[in-house]
């Protein structure tokens, strides 16, 4: 428990110190998406019977929380491990690997939720219409946890900073565009639609959209997220027990 408290205290200290940069930078990308796709296409195009702006807002929430949660853990933790060596201070301390892992993942997820709150406010300013209900919040939280735990795993696996850039280029950035964030996966031909449906961001973008627009929620979405979460967390823990 001491470990959890200590690591969270340190994260909070960093957040307070960089509050403005963090807030501003979580606004940039979502703003651009909403300007380009929302203003540009929003009122004229409709998809699945809804205005395009309303269609993409849940997608933008999904991809932004993925990006923020992932990088909020992956970037500082990989630096702490490879450059500042502060990771060693935690590994030498009498805290369990479990509390360290839990604290890092929870802190990363909290950063994702903070970004989500900002985006929801922005979307309202743009005049988008959507519901935020309990299902929405559940899927959102799961998405943040999935990607902060992936960030945790990635930070412990990479050997250098360029490795982390590659991880972003080949995995995170493609998911921003292909996981049904800006279009409906139903339009993708077989078998690509199945590949996309199995990627970890897709349940969030589809589930959040269903919740936001009052459609039927695909029950597979939270299950897939839970499965990814279980894999990333247990793999991350295993790695943390032996990594240098």
């Amino acid at each position: 428990m001491a470990g959890l408290r200590a690591v969270l205290w340190r994260e909070l200290l960093f957040f307070r110190r960089r509050w403005w940069t963090i807030t501003a930078s979580s606004m940039v990308a979502p703003l651009l998406y909403m300007v380009a796709f929302g203003w540009g296409l929003g009122k004229t195009v409709s998809l699945g019977g809804v205005a395009y702006l309303d269609f993409i807002v849940p997608g933008v929430v999904a991809l932004s929380t993925m990006n923020v949660s992932f990088n909020a853990v992956a970037t500082p933790l990989s630096i702490a491990r490879l450059y500042d060596h502060t990771f060693e201070e935690y590994m030498v301390a009498p805290i369990t690997v479990y509390s360290f892992t839990a604290a890092k993942i929870l802190a990363g997820a909290a950063r994702g939720l903070y970004a989500a709150a900002i985006i929801i406010c922005l979307a309202l300013l743009f005049g988008a219409r959507f519901n935020v209900d309990l299902r929405f919040l559940l899927l959102l939280s799961l998405n943040c946890l999935v990607f902060s735990s992936l960030g945790f795993l990635a930070a412990l696996k990479v050997r250098s900073h360029p490795d982390m850039t590659r991880f972003n280029n080949f995995l995170i950035t493609p998911m921003i565009f292909v996981c049904g964030t800006f279009f409906s996966v139903e339009r993708v031909p077989f078998p690509m639609d199945w590949v996309i449906k199995l990627l970890p961001l897709t349940p969030a973008s589809q589930g959040l959209r269903a919740a936001a627009l009052g459609w039927d929620l695909p029950w597979t979405a939270p299950l897939l997220q839970l499965a990814y979460l279980a894999v990333f967390v247990s793999w991350g823990l295993k790695t943390c027990l032996e990594v240098e």
């Binding site: 340190r10 960093f14 110190r17 500042d84 060596h85 502060t86 060693e88 201070e89 030498v92």
Partner: peptide, 12 residues
């Protein structure tokens, strides 16, 4: 432990 390389939190 006092490690060979510095491992303080530089931004604290």
């Amino acid at each position: 432990v006092v490690p060979q390389h510095l491992n303080l939190e530089p931004e604290l």
